[in-house]
């Protein structure tokens, strides 16, 4: 697949004003901006592979990305999602380890890249940014722990309902305020909930029958949010 370069603005003019680098001063943003690379990834294209040497930080300017890990049986497991303004690959750079997961564009995405050296230098020179990294890691850890509890304790139905809620929280709704703003295949939802595609199809059909959700191809419409929360057995 061919990448094409696009015109992503410099970091000081980034549309994602609340993104990771927003605490940097203008000169610091310029330093980051000077040598950043801008790339376009088509839907389905891999940004980096699990196990590969980590040499850069990826800033998602526009698009959606999934992070997956490969299981023993070759089955993918979705561990996290990223949206506009999120950064990817930072954990591997910070711990000096290979990438922990594979990042794949879920839709056409525009992504900036920053070299490992530059990222680590900026972090070291900027305590506010270091603190932000810690907050980000802390949030990731909380999410990972919640996912562990879901997988270990919840039924398939609860996990699928929880997955739909997570998709809605992460990506929001389309303009109709009912359709989740991401298209996911049944197999991807199964990878997310840690179950089989068959069980996922069955459970989604049950939720559809009860009019809690509505299936419209790969689009999922939430008709009854209260009931979906109840199905997920989430109280937090």
């Amino acid at each position: 697949m061919k990448r094409k370069s696009i015109d992503i603005p410099s970091c000081d003019n980034c549309k994602n004003s609340k993104d990771f680098f927003c605490n940097l001063s203008e000169p610091e943003k310029q330093i980051i901006s000077e040598k950043k690379g801008d790339n376009f990834y088509k839907k389905g294209q891999v940004i980096f592979y699990e196990g590969n040497h980590a040499n850069g930080l990826f800033c998602l300017y526009d698009g959606k990305v999934k992070l997956t890990k490969l299981g023993k049986d070759g089955k993918e497991q979705i561990i996290r999602f990223s949206k506009d303004g999120d950064i990817l690959g930072y954990r591997s750079l910070l711990s000096n380890e290979p990438y922990h997961a594979t990042a794949t564009a879920m839709e056409d995405s525009y992504i900036c890249t920053i070299s490992k050296e530059k990222f680590l230098t900026v972090i070291e020179d900027n305590p506010k940014l270091s603190f932000k990294v810690i907050q980000l890691l802390s949030k990731d850890l909380k999410g990972a722990e919640q996912h562990l509890i879901d997988v270990a304790q919840k039924s398939v139905k609860e996990r699928i309902a929880e997955s739909l809620l997570l998709l809605q929280t992460t990506f929001g709704y389309l303009a109709d305020n009912r359709t989740i703003n991401i298209q996911m295949s049944r197999s991807e939802i199964a990878d997310m909930a840690g179950t089989t595609t068959e069980s996922t199809i069955r459970t989604l059909a049950q939720l559809n029958e009860k009019n809690i959700i509505e299936l419209n191809g790969k689009n999922i419409v939430i008709n009854d949010m209260k009931e979906l929360i109840k199905c997920s057995n989430s109280y937090d």
Binding site: K69, R91, L94, S95, H100, D140, A144
Partner: peptide, 18 residues
């Protein structure tokens, strides 16, 4: 940062184990 990175790695690993 190192402690948090290690803990996330372990938690993801535990989830995979389940």
């Amino acid at each position: 940062i190192e402690i948090l990175c290690a803990r996330i790695k372990l938690t993801d690993f535990k989830t995979k184990n389940y």
